[in-house]
């Protein structure tokens, strides 16, 4: 195993260089040495640096078990969920480079401001609209139906932003909604209880929506939950086109 006790990792960590270390824009990599441990994750490494080398290092995490989606960073050039990424899998020649997610403003060091990412979920009409009140019986969603199957494929998103950070179109077109917001819209388009289908399809159509996707599939490749994001977006293209031809868009 590569994580032998006694060996040392060389870790380059992005540090933002605004007043008091806070701020976006410029920055530089700073190198730290971190002892290797068996089964060590990238988040363990970052935590070690903050606890033992430099307490001013800013980063974000919560659950440490791949549920909350708050710990994503760019590790050796690729966005990853750091709490579930083992150093053994990604360290090249005992080296790690850890940087904040791309396509989002940096708050400090490794922590990004994810507001724009989540605002886009709202813009993609990512809220459920139902008709029943809590006094009424539960709606029945047929588990074997094609719609429910589509929902199942996309529902496990943890909102980590890895896909958003990996998408070049987000970089080229900052108003592009991005894969996660559209995946959310796609799960709702397939929700048989939902009543806002028309508005949702209108919200995800066009240059800032599904029609901007180049089918690069970086999002699908990098999503830690292995969600089929590109095909969700293709589904939206199909449904918006149908709506367009019916005059419903």
């Amino acid at each position: 195993m590569a994580g032998d006790a006694g060996s040392v990792l060389k870790v380059s960590v992005w540090r933002s260089s605004g007043p008091g270390g806070v701020a976006a824009g410029d920055g530089r990599f700073e190198t730290f040495e971190v002892p290797r441990q068996p089964s060590q994750t990238v988040l363990d490494v970052v935590t070690h640096i903050q606890r033992h080398c430099d307490p001013t290092l800013g980063y974000r995490f919560a659950c440490r078990v791949g549920v909350c989606g708050s710990c994503a960073m760019v590790v050796n050039g690729e966005a990853r969920w750091t709490c579930r990424t083992h150093v053994d899998k990604v360290a090249e020649g005992g080296r790690l480079e850890v940087a904040p997610l791309r396509n989002l403003p940096v708050i400090r060091d490794l922590a990004t401001d994810m507001s724009a990412f989540f605002d886009k979920w709202a813009r993609a009409r990512g809220q459920f609209s139902g008709t029943r009140s809590r006094q009424e019986p539960f709606a029945v969603v047929e588990p074997q139906s094609e719609e429910r199957r589509q929902v199942d494929l996309g529902i496990e998103c943890i909102g980590c932003g890895v896909c958003y950070s990996s998408c070049d179109v987000v970089e080229w077109k900052p108003d592009y909604l991005g894969p996660a917001a559209m995946n959310r819209a796609w799960t709702l388009v397939n929700d048989v209880r939902d009543t806002a289908r028309r508005e949702r399809l209108a919200a995800v159509a066009g240059d800032a929506g599904c029609h901007a996707c180049h089918t690069h599939m970086s999002c699908t490749e990098r999503c830690p939950k292995h969600l089929p994001l590109t095909s969700a977006i293709a589904g939206l293209k199909r449904e918006t086109t149908r709506a367009l031809l019916r005059g419903e868009l």
């Binding site: 159509a205 066009g206 240059d207 029609h211 293209k237 918006t240 367009l244």
Partner: peptide, 12 residues
């Protein structure tokens, strides 16, 4: 240009 028109361009 409206998203509707943009979707139309894509289709065209």
């Amino acid at each position: 240009m409206s998203p509707r028109a943009q979707a139309g361009l894509w289709f065209a």
